[in-house]
């Protein structure tokens, strides 16, 4: 049986790494990857908590894992559109550095 507090701690550590990636990096691709990492950390927490409450009132509960599936669908859409934005940005600015994208219109 896994130590549950360590599972949740792993989730927190991964989430922090993701946040720091978003905060410190300037390459939009790495920022998007860090966002994926944060989503994954949350997924881990969902699965871990679902493991703790695997039964509610005697009935099996699976809601945490359903949420993970939904997060997967959201992450896929997010990546598709996010990378589309990145391509558009690259076309216009010839760079994927987020700090150079400071105009609302070009």
């Amino acid at each position: 049986m896994l130590p549950m507090n360590h599972v949740i701690a792993l989730s927190a550590i991964l989430f922090t790494i993701g946040v720091l990636g978003v905060a410190t990096r300037r390459n939009l691709i790495v920022i998007l990857m860090s966002i994926e990492l944060m989503l994954n950390a949350v997924n881990l927490a969902f699965v871990g908590f679902n493991r703790i409450w695997s039964q509610v009132d005697g009935a099996a509960a699976i809601d945490g894992q359903i949420f993970v599936l939904m997060v997967i669908a959201v992450a896929a859409s997010e990546v598709a559109v996010g990378l589309g934005i990145l391509l558009a940005m690259f076309r216009n600015r010839d760079s994927v550095n987020v700090e150079e994208v400071n105009l609302l219109k070009w």
Binding site: L69, I72, A73, A76, S77, V79, A80, L83, G84, L87
Partner: peptide, 17 residues
């Protein structure tokens, strides 16, 4: 290639459902 990969991601999620 990017367009194929986009379609792939979306339909892969469809397939897992």
């Amino acid at each position: 290639f990017y367009m194929v990969a986009i379609l792939f991601v979306v339909f892969d999620v469809e397939a897992i459902f």
